[in-house]
Design a protein around this nucleic acid. Structure first.
Length: 310
DNA sequence: CACTTGACCTGTCCGC
DNA sequence: TGCGGACAGGTCAAGT
């Protein structure tokens, strides 16, 4: 019997590859799953043939990954970190279509999990890396579009990666205050607010879904220039963003059958989205038809009545 | 420098 | 049924 490490993003069978792109809540859900499944496991072998996405030399993999035990699974922004007892870490970015799928643990999880059929087909043509553990379980890195990547590097060097040097604060960190949020957003006064939310150097982890959802929550048009938004409105936006991220993480944890069955598919945070991918449907707040436009180079969803462009 | 756009990939969907 | 083009839950390099 098998389990996905990120069950909520496996929607319908025919949606296997197109419904898995992660933002902060999705990556956090993957992290929680991997943390549960992988801690203490010992890597037996790694197979990969994907120099661009996993550029480490075979000798590094042999020396610091094969035989290593997994100490911890962490997340920063949308990046996953798997710490090994060799003082090396796997650094993984799923980008748009990356997946980490775990297969194993018959005793712990029992039979009949709804993801049996899916995981049973792995590895497949999108499998870029396969990790074999000494207990016979496996972890697959699948990535249809090959935007994602895996790196093996010394744990102490991870924080020195360019991305981690530049990335903004975690939006749900206790130490990150509404005032901090406003200050950082104001670093891009002439940009549209959606572009700023998507900028990982301002705030970490926000992507296309949660920018649209939080802007709807705060009743701000995605193309509004930051300079035209009052501090009080930015604070409302911060609250809306935190609420939607927390809600989504909570839903991501809803991997049980009931949730799956109730939706008729394998769970999706989209079932509670207010505007995302709901163009043509009524706004849950006012009933106006939801619009889809192009903003910050991305498909963008909004209520043209609630979210007036300044 | 601030800010926006194109490129990276593969697959799917939609209109002709 | 086939084909072209748009588009996709991200990020960085190159452009204005």
């Amino acid at each position: 019997m098998y389990l996905l490490a990120h069950v909520p993003y496996q929607a319908a069978d025919n949606c296997y590859n197109s419904c898995t792109m992660p933002e902060l809540p999705e990556v956090e859900t993957v992290r929680i799953g991997l943390h549960q499944f992988l801690l203490g496991k010992q890597v037996k072998a790694v197979s990969f043939d994907w120099p661009k996405g996993f550029p480490n030399a075979a000798s590094d993999v042999q020396g610091f990954l094969a035989g290593a035990r997994i100490l911890d699974v962490r997340r920063r922004a949308k990046v996953l970190l798997i710490d090994l007892d060799t003082a090396y870490s796997l650094v993984i970015h799923l980008k748009m279509t990356g997946q980490l799928v775990y297969k194993g643990d018959h005793e712990r999880f029992g039979a009949g999990h709804p993801n049996d059929s899916l995981v049973g087909t792995l590895p497949d043509k999108s499998t870029r890396v396969t990790f074999d553990f000494t207990d016979g379980s496996q972890l697959f890195f699948n990535d249809q579009r090959k935007f994602g990547w895996v790196r093996l590097m010394p744990t102490v060097e991870v924080e020195h990666l360019d991305f981690f040097q530049r990335v903004g604060p975690e939006p749900l960190a206790d130490t990150f205050t509404p005032k901090d949020f406003v200050t950082r957003i104001r670093r891009r006064p002439k940009s549209g607010i959606k572009a700023v939310l998507l900028d990982q150097t301002i705030v970490a982890g926000v992507g296309n879904i949660y920018s649209d959802e939080s802007l709807w929550g705060a009743k701000i048009h995605p193309e509004t220039k930051v300079a035209d938004i009052a501090d009080s409105q930015l604070e409302v936006l911060f609250k809306a963003l935190q609420d939607i991220l927390r809600l989504s993480i909570e839903k991501g944890g809803s991997t049980d059958r009931n949730y799956v069955n109730a939706e008729g598919k394998r769970g999706s945070y989209l079932t509670f989205a207010h505007v995302f991918r709901r163009e043509g449907k009524p706004c849950p707040r006012c009933g106006t038809t939801i619009l889809k436009i192009r903003a910050a180079g991305r498909g963008t969803h909004l209520c043209p009545n609630c979210q007036i462009k300044v």
